[in-house]
Design a binder for these strands. Structure first.
Lengths: 342, 342
DNA sequence: TTTTATTATGCAATCGATTGCCCGATTATT
DNA sequence: AATAATCGGGCAATCGATTGCATAATAAAA
């Protein structure tokens, strides 16, 4: 079974007794070709089942309308929403999306970025892996004048476009909400402090606690309570304190908050009456638990759209002179039953 | 700020006073180049920050190590898991993944497929949109000798590789489980019957009902109860029957099952005692509801891996003579509290 | 009717890497 | 020592589309 060659503009040119250049112009609707010829070329191309070879075109034109995306995990609600949002916009612009996942590993992230550089993508959109290393691979991107947009987890030092959530304000708001509900000993489950977003969330917590006139208590802050299991473990420890907390802000994720809720349910602790629980991310399940969990929505789909639009508006419009810009989105506190005492 | 050109093999060749061909061979580790020269080229390439231009390379080699994926929605648990699984495998093979979403629209699906054909991807992996139309676009793919793998929602008529879930057996098993738990009037929430997977699930339901010696009752089968809202609506109707069902199999999705559960909870109907509920897909939240929902796990991540491996094993190894093969994965019934009477 | 614009088309170089073929210089074989 | 084989490397064509420049044909202007 022999692989028949695809039709190229040369095939069309030959058939119509034209030059390939004319065919090319006709197909790209250039004004330099006669309307009749144009129509004929278009018709013939359709008949011959012609489809442009994007590789050749892009090579010649020196640009590739493709955006590379690197996320820690594709199948994580937040990121898959981001990707969906990105796709929504890039599709309309005729851009392709190449997706990679770093699996939270630095080495793999470097690999992905290099692959994207090879592909000569127009832009790389990235949220960095938990396992951070040097930023040399990102610097490489900049050195090659490939647009780079960081989002969510960003490297501050790098002077790039950034789209982030205002984690600090959101966290602060969440904690102030807890205070308003009458909680007085509010614990924090925090994430790895070498990741900016977790530092910011902790900042928000601290400033809200201070602002409310409460003391900052080391024993109420648990490190690395990232997953459901770790959240549960931390909760057990917190609850066995001589003076246990009356609310827990799982700033790492809703999964962590779920761990808290499960422990509370197991122990017969009333939520929200005896223990208030607040998560982060607005995972779909937070609405479904009983009680439903108060959390923070990050507008992930629209964030994806924002990122893509940023590229198209700011970056395509002008040339490289554009000042890198930081877009900060304020997430929204979603109050549900797990913190509604009143 | 002028965009400095990227270094090419010609730049390296010039610097080392070599021919570009030798540089190319050195970089691809060809045996036709002296070890010393090879080392020198590699070193110089690194110094000059050389990165291959994949577009040029792929054009010349006539192949593009890229796989295109078209799914209805990227941010749907099942599909994002599939993509994660695919990526896991393709990454290791040095392949790129271009992701598109059809948004369940036929026209958009056609667009995506055409874009992928333009890109000369090596393979297109697709789960077709709910809004089906002609299959001409997929036929085009085959005509151009691009590998095509359909998964989950497939077009039977097309003679391609297919990776599917054995929806019929899984549904049958679920219903038989309900029967074993003593449920006697089992209702079905079904999806659009022009999509194969929903037809198959209904078949499974029907055969289990017959096998159990129960009558097939039209009034217990509700069409198009796809979403949570539709599931809830259908449940209200079912419960207002003179002789209401004692179990509901939401074959469309867990969301639909969730709608059922919410209605039951609202009405104070005991689950699983008075009403049994079974969903489909093993969405993360099914574990969390109270009671937790019995459902069917589709092994989505591993299914993604299976699909990718299918491409690499069967399709790269041989040439086009390979007989299209159908891989059927048997999903797993996950029994939880919503159907556990005993 | 001659000259100048305009329009439509062709020619050939180009994007960057790969590869078949050829050739000179070593090394191995008889 | 003469011939054959091997090695290392260069030349130039090629992948398919695009584009600056040249040119023929036609229309407009003088």
């Amino acid at each position: 079974m022999k692989r028949q060659k695809r039709t190229t503009i040369y095939d069309i040119a030959q058939k119509l007794n034209l030059a390939a250049s004319s065919v090319s112009r006709a197909l790209s609707n250039s004004s330099k070709v006669n309307a009749a010829t144009k129509a004929l070329v278009l018709k013939t191309a359709a008949e011959m089942n012609y489809q442009q070879n994007a590789m050749a075109s892009n090579l010649r034109k020196g640009n590739n309308p493709t955006i590379g995306v690197v996320v820690p995990r594709i199948n994580q609600n937040f990121f898959s929403n981001i990707i969906a949002g990105l796709e929504e916009v890039t599709y309309k612009k005729g851009y392709n999306l190449i997706i990679c996942q770093s699996n939270e590993l630095h080495a793999r992230e470097v690999d992905c970025v290099n692959a994207l550089i090879n592909q000569h993508v127009s832009c790389i959109i990235i949220s960095i892996a938990a396992e951070t290393g040097s930023y040399q691979h990102l610097q490489q991107v900049l050195d090659r004048h490939i647009r780079l947009i960081q989002f969510d987890r960003v490297v501050d030092e790098l002077d790039t476009f950034k789209v982030i959530n205002d984690n600090e304000r959101a966290s602060q708001e969440a904690v102030l909400h807890l205070v308003a509900q009458g909680y007085k000993r509010i614990a924090l489950l925090e994430g790895p402090q070498d990741i900016d977003i977790f530092r910011q969330r902790k900042e928000g917590y601290l400033s809200a606690i201070r602002k409310s006139g409460f003391p900052v208590l080391e024993e109420l802050m648990c490190e690395n309570a990232w997953t459901k299991e770790l959240g549960a473990k931390a909760t057990l420890e917190l609850l066995s304190l001589p003076d246990p907390p009356d609310a827990i802000f799982a700033s790492t994720s809703d999964f962590s908050a779920l761990g808290v809720l499960e422990v509370a349910t197991d122990k017969g602790i009333a939520v929200p009456e005896t223990l208030g629980i607040c998560g982060y991310s607005n995972e779909p399940f937070t609405e479904i638990t009983s009680p439903s969990i108060t959390t923070i929505d990050q507008y992930s789909i629209s964030m994806g759209k924002t990122i893509a639009n940023l590229y198209f508006q700011e970056m395509e419009a002008f040339d490289y002179g554009v000042e890198p810009k930081i877009v900060s989105i304020k997430p929204k506190l979603i109050v549900r039953k797990s913190t509604s005492r009143s």
